Amino acid sequence: MLSTQYKEHFSDYRSWDQLDHAQDWLLFEDNIGESLSIDETCLSSGEVYTFLTNKAGKGRKGTLVAVVKGTKAEDVIQVLKKIDLSKRNTVKEITLDLSSSMMRIARSVFPKALITNDRFHVQKLYYDALDDMRIAYRWMARDKENEEIKEAKSKGKEYIPFRYSNGDTRKQLLARAKFILTKHKTKWTETQKGRAQIIFEHYPTLKKAYDLAMKLTDI
C-alpha cells in the first residue's frame, strides 16, 4: 500500500481505492522544484501508478508533483508535458531507477535535467551479481559432492561429507554465505565472522567481489 505521506494531496478521496477509479492522472505543478524523483508504486488495490515528487518536500506538503496511472512511457510523458515547458526547464536533476521507461520519460519531459540513477538500485544490481557468484560455487560444490557419493558407492563405502572447521559441509557453507555476503561486515555476528573467514579463504574471488561491494556501500 502507498505510504500515507501524500494523503493530504488526496483529501477529496475517502480511500486510496477510490483514487484508482477517480481519474487517470493528477498534477500539482506548483510543487515542481529543481530536484525531482520519479518512480512507480502500487495503491492498495494493486494498480500501479507513476509518481513524480519534489525532493525538497521531504514527504510533507508540497512533495507530490504528479501521479499518473500506469507506467507506459507515452502516457506518462503526455500528462507531464501538460506542465509548462518553462517550469520543466527549471528542473536540474531527476533521480530514477534503472528502468528504460523511466529514463525515456525523464529525457523527454525534463530535457535540461541531469539524470541520476538511484543508489539503492545500483547497489541491488551489484549484490545480485555477487549472489549469482555464490550460487555458481554452490552448484559446483553440489556436483563435487555427487561425485564423491558416487565414488564411495562404487567402493562400497559409507559416504562421509567433507566438513570445514566450523562443521559446515561445502553446500551448507555456501548456502549460509548468502546472509554474510548481503550484510556489511560491521553487522556480522561472531559466528558469521568465523564463517566469513572460511568462505574467503576457500573462495578468494568472493572476497574480492564482497570487498568491492563494501566500497560501493561505504560511498
Score class of each variant (00 low, 15 high):
1 M>F: 12
4 T>L: 11
7 K>D: 13
9 H>E: 12
10 F>D: 09
11 S>Y: 02
15 S>A: 08
16 W>H: 10
17 D>F: 09
20 D>N: 03
20 D>M: 01
26 L>A: 11
31 N>V: 01
32 I>E: 04
37 S>Y: 05
39 D>P: 02
42 C>F: 14
43 L>I: 12
46 G>I: 01
46 G>N: 04
50 T>P: 06
51 F>V: 14
51 F>P: 06
51 F>G: 09
56 A>L: 13
59 G>F: 03
63 T>Q: 00
65 V>Q: 01
65 V>Y: 00
68 V>E: 05
68 V>G: 08
72 K>F: 10
73 A>C: 03
73 A>Y: 05
77 I>N: 03
79 V>Y: 08
82 K>I: 08
82 K>Q: 15
87 K>L: 06
89 N>I: 04
94 I>V: 08
94 I>R: 00
95 T>C: 12
96 L>Y: 08
97 D>K: 01
97 D>G: 09
100 S>F: 10
100 S>Q: 13
108 S>R: 12
109 V>F: 01
109 V>S: 06
110 F>Y: 13
110 F>S: 09
115 I>G: 00
116 T>A: 14
116 T>I: 15
117 N>K: 09
120 F>V: 02
127 Y>L: 12
128 D>K: 12
129 A>E: 13
131 D>T: 14
135 I>Q: 08
136 A>N: 13
137 Y>R: 11
139 W>F: 12
152 A>E: 01
153 K>Y: 05
153 K>M: 06
153 K>F: 08
154 S>P: 08
154 S>Y: 07
154 S>L: 11
156 G>C: 02
156 G>K: 01
158 E>M: 09
160 I>K: 15
162 F>T: 00
163 R>N: 04
163 R>G: 03
166 N>G: 02
171 K>E: 15
173 L>A: 06
175 A>F: 15
180 I>K: 01
181 L>Q: 02
188 W>Q: 05
189 T>W: 03
192 Q>D: 04
194 G>K: 03
195 R>C: 00
195 R>P: 00
197 Q>Y: 12
203 Y>E: 02
203 Y>A: 00
206 L>N: 06
206 L>M: 07
208 K>E: 13
208 K>A: 14
210 Y>R: 02
212 L>H: 11
215 K>P: 08
216 L>F: 09
218 D>T: 11
